[in-house]
């Protein structure tokens, strides 16, 4: 069923037993890869070989493999998710590589994302930011009818653009400062734009940006690297929105 043409690739992969292990690169060969393999399926092939040799397979995070759960997290040749526009690494296909290529695979690197093992990192810092205020404080039940507050299409679309974030952390991984401002900005902007979220907008923006700092993320200095790396194409205009919301909060 697969194509006749296959590729052989050299992989230079970060291996690290645990958070306290210094870690190092190991070199592997991926053989028999077709253009239809996804990047993770290519790694599956390598791992199957490693297991058969009795070696530890490369640990990497992945789950839905259709680009929506945000679990996969690999820096491929220096770019989170491999650099194909609006594509997570699980949806990156090997047709973007050619026979004989050497590929560097590294985990997300940031102080806030300590390596758990190999390419797996701990992203609980992102959960901390949401827990600080990435919600509306509505109760289960006892809410108004969905049409009670009208939300014009442009506003709903704007909120949806922001809400597309899958929380993968590529913005942090790509940021020279390891800042999570795009992640935070997207949530702040989504909820600030909607009437349901406006009531808590001021408290939210302060709490979430403080949590960002406390979780060990860096500060945003407007490199816009995050926007380029984001597999959902989240715009840095949402960081600008966060900045505006912060100023509004200062005036309150």
């Amino acid at each position: 069923m697969s194509d006749h043409k296959t590729m052989t690739l050299t992989l230079i992969v970060w291996r690290q037993k645990g958070p306290n292990d210094p870690g190092k690169f190991e070199t592997y060969t991926a053989k028999g890869i077709t253009e239809h393999h996804s990047f993770l399926e290519m790694l599956d092939v390598v791992n199957e070989d490693l297991i058969k040799e009795g070696k530890d397979p490369i640990a990497f995070d992945h789950d839905c493999r259709e680009g929506i759960c945000g679990m996969c997290s690999q820096v491929v040749n220096g770019v989170p998710h491999g650099g194909q526009e609006r594509t997570t690494v699980c949806q990156l296909h090997m047709r973007t590589f050619k026979d004989g290529d050497t590929i560097y695979i590294e985990p997300w690197r940031a102080r806030a994302f300590p390596v758990t093992r190999d390419l797996i990192v701990d992203r609980s810092g992102l959960d901390n930011i949401i827990q600080a205020g990435g919600y509306t404080s509505c109760h289960t039940g006892g809410v108004a009818d969905g049409n009670a507050l009208l939300i014009p299409k442009e506003i709903a679309d704007y909120a949806m653009d922001a809400a597309e974030c899958i929380g993968c952390g590529a913005c942090v991984a790509s940021c020279p400062n390891s800042s999570a401002m795009l992640f935070t900005g997207a949530k702040v902007a989504q909820l600030a734009a909607l009437p349901q979220g406006k009531a808590e907008a001021a408290v939210r923006v302060c709490a979430m940006t403080d949590a960002l700092k406390e979780s060990g993320f860096g500060n945003c200095s407007n490199h816009y690297e995050c926007e380029a790396a984001c597999p959902k194409g989240i715009s840095v205009k949402f960081i600008a929105r966060l900045n505006r919301e912060y100023q509004k909060a200062l005036l309150k």
Binding site: F25, G78, V79, G83, E106, R111
Partner: peptide, 17 residues
Amino acid sequence: NSAATPKKYSVQKHLRA
């Protein structure tokens, strides 16, 4: 910011910075 980024990538490629 530099403390938040203790380890750089061995292949570093910037897209927008």
